[in-house]
């Protein structure tokens, strides 16, 4: 670990008087899988949206890979290497699986506006797209239109899209949401493979997955981080138990 890839300092976000992010500070180290847990309404998705650029914070600073990105638009953050999977599955339903991933693959091209190049025959896009699908185990479904994929497959497709962006940081918002036990375990296995190669900020309710995957865990309550530590320490932290894990026994 060579210093943080993502560093959040004093982040603030309010919606009409409701404090969604309250003086939040957090570091994600390079190569680390950092899980973010907390009760519903703690502001996890709001935080992810500010990191990815969909929302602009009211105060504080976000720096990524050494550069201040607090005010950068979403598309530029994507090109800098931040990829997000959405909480609600968000793929382009009319595109095939391969086309979805190819669209994501163009994000990592830093230069060259080759507007009118034939996209579906462009191996500079389709080759990395196919690689990402293979990594995620979806290569046999490459030519299926996304709306015909199962829910679990769409979540996988989303992940493949994030990978095709060749990101430095993956923001994963509840990748197991809505999955059955089997799909969930399959996704945990896929993520365990990915954590070797990427820094990951993982929001997840499935505690088995969190404790299996995370190097460190932060607990978010009412928009602020109340504890950060390795999974064992978080499990035994009394404040965390009271605020969040308590109801699980």
């Amino acid at each position: 670990m060579s210093g943080p890839i993502l560093s959040i300092r004093g982040l603030e976000k309010r919606f009409a008087g409701i404090v969604a992010t309250n003086n939040l500070s957090l570091d994600v180290q390079a190569g680390e899988t950092h899980a973010l847990i907390g009760p519903n309404g703690a502001g996890k998705t709001t935080l992810i949206a500010q990191l990815q650029g969909e929302l602009t914070p009211d105060g504080g600073a976000i720096s990524f890979d050494g550069a201040d990105i607090t005010r950068e638009p979403a598309w530029r953050r994507a090109r800098l290497g931040i990829a997000r999977s959405f909480q609600i599955t968000s793929v382009f339903p009319a595109f095939t699986a391969l086309q979805n991933v190819a669209l994501a693959a163009q994000a990592r091209e830093r230069h060259g506006f080759r507007f009118f190049k034939n996209a579906s025959a462009d191996s500079a896009l389709t080759r990395p797209a196919m690689e990402a699908l293979t990594t995620i185990g979806l290569d046999s479904r490459a030519d299926i239109v996304a709306e015909d994929l199962s829910h679990g497959e769409r979540r996988q497709l989303e992940l493949a899209m994030a990978l095709a962006m060749k990101p430095k940081l993956l923001l994963l918002d509840e990748p197991m949401a809505g999955m059955g036990r089997q799909d969930g375990q399959r996704m945990t296995k896929i993520l365990a493979g990915l954590k070797q190669n990427y820094a990951i900020l993982l929001v997840e309710h499935d505690m088995d997955a969190v404790f299996a995957l995370a190097d460190r865990v932060s607990v978010l309550v009412a928009g602020a981080v109340i504890a950060t530590g390795d999974p064992a320490a978080i499990r035994s932290d009394s404040a965390v138990k009271a605020a969040y894990l308590g109801h699980k026994g």
Binding site: Q52, G53, E54, P73, A74, W75, R76, A78, R79, A83, R84, F86, S90, V91, F92, P93, A94, F95, L103, A104, Q106, A107, R108, M161, M165
Partner: peptide, 16 residues
């Protein structure tokens, strides 16, 4: 097409 279908998602993928 991506922008017409889902604008925030297209931005998240690096489309200006």
């Amino acid at each position: 097409r991506a922008g017409a279908s889902d604008r925030p998602m297209a931005s998240a993928l690096g489309v200006d």
